[in-house]
Design a binder for these strands. Sequence first.
DNA 1: TTCCTTTTTTGACAATTGTCAAAAGAAAGA
DNA 2: TCTTTCTTTTGACAATTGTCAAAAAAGGAA
Lengths: 188, 188
Amino acid sequence: MNALHHCISQYHPISVEAWEALSKALTRVEVPKNSFLVKEGMVCNKLYFLEQGCLRGYYNNLDGKEVTYWFGFENNFITSFYSFISRKPGIENIQTLEDSTLWGISFEALNQLFDQHHDLERLVRIINEQYYIRLEERLMAMQFKTARERYEQLLETSPHILQRIPLGQIASYLGISQETLSRIRSQV
Amino acid sequence: MNALHHCISQYHPISVEAWEALSKALTRVEVPKNSFLVKEGMVCNKLYFLEQGCLRGYYNNLDGKEVTYWFGFENNFITSFYSFISRKPGIENIQTLEDSTLWGISFEALNQLFDQHHDLERLVRIINEQYYIRLEERLMAMQFKTARERYEQLLETSPHILQRIPLGQIASYLGISQETLSRIRSQV
DNA sequence: TTCCTTTTTTGACAATTGTCAAAAGAAAGA
DNA sequence: TCTTTCTTTTGACAATTGTCAAAAAAGGAA
């Protein structure tokens, strides 16, 4: 839980009371490799903090292919965002790629905490904003960079992904075919 | 200002006091076509609500080309998000594509309101979340759909864009060349 | 209207990326 | 260790998209 406290304080420090209330609402979750935190068709009711391990979010597109659109690593917040926020079933699957340890909080508990602790809601607003900025950067790369440039950017900003994730999933994340990524990689 | 109040209430109703405080902090801004709300290199200090008109956000990439990455229409919230949140100079230009009427609030004023009105901060958190979901959908389209599919999706979800925006800017927004978009359009 | 500017379309060709199939390599279990 | 399975690479070819240049069309101003 220290990792979460440390992570939080980098976004926005919260009061001792808020932290205590939050701690009480958290559940520790240990999940072995290749299991599912969220499956398509269900409403995702939990927001997680990933203490140890590695996950991916993916969905099955119309051709029956798995489409990976994010990876989660240590100190990331994890949820099926659309489903968690809208309270509707999502198309997303969240799968552990390694044995993972997470802390989870339910939607209801989180919103109760928001009512009681203004600073907790501020924290979440600020975290959301930072995640928005990251998403925006990713969109811009996707829109205006070639496959090679996107791969090189990934090498620079997130080299750990390359060491922990199979190539096919990285290719999907970059929006290119596995064969193309393999060729790009051999020519760098 | 009615448009803003109506828009807000669709996200999250706020108290009368919060609305009054917010109203007082807002400045009406009228901007003729082809002027700039934000220019690259500056810190964007305002969050806007677009009452009437139409804008785009773009930046100049390394090749000297203008890269459009969003459009704003009536009832949209507008800012140079990265710059407004991080308080750092951004690379973004925000330009009016039509004569436009907006309501603006400064970063400082907004944050003061957050301190005084918890429900206003909640409102903004909720709006942020909805904008995050939209961005996520756009990223997914960019990652896994062909140019033609992205154009058809735009036709379905935002046909008004096609009527109000020059083709070159739409092509840029879709991440394709103007020539390709022109050809796609002639074949639909 | 007429001229001038901007936007859109078209053609020819090149570059990038995808698809399918097979081979090579690496990892995991018996 | 030896299989078996999963992952990555390679080849051949096709489809998509981009680039450059020029023509056509549309829009604005005098």
